[in-house]
Design a protein around this nucleic acid. Structure first.
Length: 287
DNA sequence: ACGCCCGCCTGTAAGC
DNA sequence: TGCTTACAGGCGGGCG
């Protein structure tokens, strides 16, 4: 469900409320997620303090201060990182402990007067925990993650070099987390429409101006979607940390809009099923 | 390397 | 009303 803008909204919200807060306890439901929970998750989280929140693609990273024997943070030690992937139906909620649990609440991290709760009906999400130093290599091996789609190091020049090396279709390239991390089905369609490119164009076939248009569209769509706090569709699956919907769905130009006029040229938006999932595009002004 | 299918799960909506 | 089917924003394994 959540793609880069939705995870970024949750990351930002969580940073605002959880940084410098101490974890009092953590526990999981018996239900298995996509991957097994880390060993001794509860004891390893207890007593730690959240130092920052980060994001890599669709992965939310919660940095914990290093622990010492006396509970004093050691600036020279490397702390651990909690990794949360929300899969298709995962939500994070910041709730009062007195609030009843929502159905499918699988992980509860208690901060005393507030709790961070992971809710995931379809259990496609997962939780990881490991040393910060090992995180990059772990994600590269485990998730084979490319650079984050909004990262500074992913310049237009780097993007063009990467794209020139692939012959895959653009929609699959954008959704390939090993190419760039963070783009899913919704934003792939929106980015390709903004760039004026068809989903089935081959990566290496693009002219220089088209590569630049694609790069600009990727950055602009994702930034705008972050500013709008993500997209909440009719199923209302995505909510921010406090249960509020995003607003970028009002700016969607093609996604879930089959038959409606293209905002750029007026032609009817087409829906096709590609590899078992829906793709929306304008047959007239995407080339 | 790439595309395609399937399975993993549950919830919802549409169709009969 | 109930039953069946399709579908949902992700990912990873297997196969051709």
């Amino acid at each position: 469900m959540p793609e880069l803008p939705e995870v970024e909204t949750v990351r930002s919200d969580l940073g605002a409320v959880a940084v410098n807060r101490r974890i009092e306890s953590a526990s999981t439901s018996g239900k298995a997620l996509r991957r097994p929970y880390p060993d001794r998750l509860g004891p390893r989280l207890q007593g730690r303090t959240v130092s920052s929140t980060r994001r890599w693609g669709k992965h939310l990273l919660i940095d914990l201060e290093a622990e010492t024997d006396h509970g004093v943070p050691d600036p020279l030690a490397t702390g651990e990182v909690v990794v949360i992937h929300l899969g298709m139906s995962g939500q994070l909620w910041w709730q009062d402990p007195a609030e009843p649990y929502l159905a499918h609440t699988h992980l509860v991290i208690s901060f005393g007067d507030a709790e961070l709760r992971l809710v995931d009906p379809r259990t496609f999400g997962w939780v990881g925990l490991g040393p910060r130093a090992a995180l990059a290599s772990a994600l590269e091996v485990f998730g084979r993650l490319g650079p984050d789609a909004l990262s500074r190091e992913l310049t237009g020049q780097v993007f063009a070099q990467m794209l020139a090396r692939t012959n895959a279709r653009l929609k699959l390239v954008l959704m390939d987390q090993a190419f760039v991390a963070g783009i899913g089905n919704i934003y792939a369609d929106e980015i390709l429409h903004a760039a004026g490119l068809r989903w089935d164009r081959r990566g290496a076939s693009l002219a220089r101006s088209e590569v630049e248009a694609l790069y600009s569209a990727m950055r602009e769509v994702l930034r705008d979607a972050c500013d709008a706090r993500g997209s909440t569709l009719a199923d209302a699956q995505y909510r921010d940390l406090f249960g509020r919907p995003g607003s970028y769905q009002a700016h969607h130009r093609v996604h879930a809009r089959q038959g409606l006029p293209c905002p750029r040229c007026g032609a009817g938006i087409v829906r096709e099923r590609i590899g078992g999932r829906s793709t929306y595009f304008c047959p007239s002004c995407q080339h």
